[in-house]
Design a protein around this nucleic acid. Sequence first.
DNA 1: CTTGCCTCTGACGTCAACGTCAGGTTTTAG
DNA 2: CTAAAACCTGACGTTGACGTCAGAGGCAAG
Lengths: 125, 125
Amino acid sequence: MTVTEAATERLIRIGEVARGAGVSVRAVRYYEQQGLLIAERSPSGQRLYRQDAISRIRFFQQMFAAGLTSRRITELMPCWDAGHTDADQRAMLRAERDRIQAKVDELQAVLDRLDEVIAITDNHP
Amino acid sequence: MTVTEAATERLIRIGEVARGAGVSVRAVRYYEQQGLLIAERSPSGQRLYRQDAISRIRFFQQMFAAGLTSRRITELMPCWDAGHTDADQRAMLRAERDRIQAKVDELQAVLDRLDEVIAITDNHP
DNA sequence: CTTGCCTCTGACGTCAACGTCAGGTTTTAG
DNA sequence: CTAAAACCTGACGTTGACGTCAGAGGCAAG
């Protein structure tokens, strides 16, 4: 890809981004407000995004689902964007991983309890 | 256990229950307000609980951690308390199990992404 | 008796990720 | 050119499981 092509990359507006990522327009504005997704602006003030905004939002959603806050995601973004990490970030990464792993174990325990009672009640129709 | 022994079972007050279960007194009152844990009352109006209140609260906490609401827990309590289940309850049990299983998969995916970036950044100190 | 801790009932506050509404501008379709 | 659709900026509302505070009563110890 040449510099000229990069400079003329097709930009999309917020509605298309939201539909593409399966979230609301309000959500996309919220991500900007949280510093997660900064958009360019058209002369009239409308937000303009590059294509990768959609996959970035999908990434945010995945992290949200895992219990990370937008603040934490902002702090850890450089680890993916720049591939660079300092001590604080490494500590946060491990802390989040451990927390999520503990959560998985917790959920698995509940799954077992549910499956147990499901098995019992299925035998008592 | 005889009827007489059951009638004289040692009852405990809310503070002991809260400490035993590792939650706040406020939380215990909240569970009662949600219909999860009904307490007897002393003549002066203080809540009196049986010993098993502590394990019940631990159970609630586990379910909360899995994303069940207090309403849902109330609806599903008979499945454990009475060992009995109707069609609606069986459907809810399966729905919750499926939701939790999906969540586990989601968390596992995030774990993989975190471990990936942790492995990479550990090689770039 | 009183000191100090425990408990009671409201009732408002918190946090995160948005939803929703109001009122106004911009872009697009015909 | 005009109307509909999309976008903008505030700003208040929502949800669930509590936290916190106020004001009042209850209970064992010394």
